[in-house]
Simulated assay, not measured.
Amino acid sequence: MNPTIRRASALASALAITASVTACSRSESPATPDGQTVATSSTGTTPAPTTDTQPPKPAEIFDRAKSNALAATSAVVTGEFDRDGATTKISWQGAADGKTLDLRLTQHGLGNVHLIAVGGDVYLQADATGWKALGFAKLVQAAGDKFVKAPAASVGDLAQSFSLRSLVEKSFGSLDASGLNGRVGSETVDGVDCWVLTGPSGAQNGALYVAKDSMQLVRIVGPKEKPLQLTFSQWGEELDIKAPPPDEVVGLK
């Protein structure tokens, strides 16, 4: 793996969100019977309109959301999570194979990093703090606010680290549908009516929000002790990801 991409991968630990969502499957208390609906609450959500429709089983919602996410050709992910006591903000959009993507990360002490992969090329941009965090302080003067073009060989490594499939697999990887609360919640997230899955102790230890109509993942919220909120959208839509203009790019030496 190219050193620049390796360091970017280490810094972009947004893919390490598994630890923040495993609480959804903890077993702190006995689960309630399947098929019951309960109102839940979290930041940015409102109770969904009450209907007589019985929710699917929690395991069915979980499995369908995971299958749909893995089958999607593209998506957009935005949000923030706690990493070593600092809040990291992420904006990610890209394709399932990771060969086309646009990733932005911001964290106090690590600066701003912007990574684009498109057309077989990889471009990396950072502020002075970001370059130093990546271990390339000398590039601060050489690149300034321009993008650095990495070798084409980096695309394969990048695809493995930042693909949509990798993100989804890490999101769902350590969750066990059998450990979910049997009571399915119902809320509206950004105008989308969602089923809400939690662990036995409720949303305080994390939750998954899944769209009722499409069974697509809408949001992941982590436990209070390790804050995280990631919102997923534009599943399968065509994304407008372009290479930066030539006059904003410098070669990597």
Rank of each mutant, 00 (worst) to 15 (best):
M1K: 04
I5E: 08
I5W: 09
I5V: 12
R6M: 10
S9P: 00
S9L: 11
A10H: 10
L11G: 01
A14L: 11
A14E: 13
L15H: 09
L15A: 07
T18K: 09
A19H: 08
V21I: 15
V21Q: 09
C24M: 12
S25W: 02
S25R: 05
R26K: 01
R26T: 12
S27W: 03
E28P: 00
E28R: 04
P30S: 01
A31I: 12
G35S: 04
A39R: 11
A39E: 12
T40M: 07
G44P: 07
G44I: 06
T45G: 07
P47A: 12
A48V: 07
A48Y: 11
T51S: 14
D52T: 15
T53W: 03
Q54R: 14
Q54G: 11
P55N: 10
P55M: 13
P56R: 04
P56V: 13
A59E: 13
F62G: 10
D63A: 15
D63W: 01
D63K: 13
A65M: 01
N68I: 09
A69S: 15
A69G: 10
A71D: 15
V76P: 01
E80H: 11
E80P: 01
F81E: 10
T88N: 06
K89I: 00
S91A: 14
S91D: 14
G94M: 06
A96Y: 02
D102A: 13
L103T: 04
R104D: 03
R104H: 05
T106R: 10
T106S: 08
G109K: 05
G111E: 08
H114Q: 11
H114K: 03
L115W: 11
A117M: 01
V118F: 00
G120V: 04
D121G: 02
D121I: 04
A126K: 03
T129R: 04
G130W: 00
G130D: 06
W131E: 08
G135I: 13
A137Y: 01
A142I: 04
A142F: 05
A143Q: 08
G144I: 07
A152N: 06
A153W: 00
S154Q: 09
S154R: 01
S154G: 15
V155W: 05
G156N: 08
F162P: 04
S163G: 15
S163C: 09
R165S: 14
V168I: 15
V168L: 11
V168Y: 05
E169I: 04
K170R: 15
L175Y: 04
D176C: 03
A177C: 12
G179K: 14
R183C: 03
G185A: 06
S186A: 15
T188N: 10
T188C: 02
V189C: 01
L197Q: 05
Q204D: 14
G206H: 13
L208E: 09
L208Y: 14
L208P: 03
Y209K: 07
K212S: 05
K212W: 10
K212R: 14
D213I: 02
M215D: 14
V218I: 14
V218G: 00
R219M: 12
V221F: 02
V221Y: 03
V221P: 00
G222V: 08
E225A: 10
K226H: 11
P227R: 08
P227K: 07
P227F: 09
P227T: 07
P227I: 10
L230A: 06
T231G: 01
T231C: 02
F232G: 02
W235Y: 12
W235G: 09
G236E: 10
E238L: 10
A243S: 09
P244R: 07
P245Q: 11
P245E: 08
P246L: 03
D247I: 05
K253D: 15
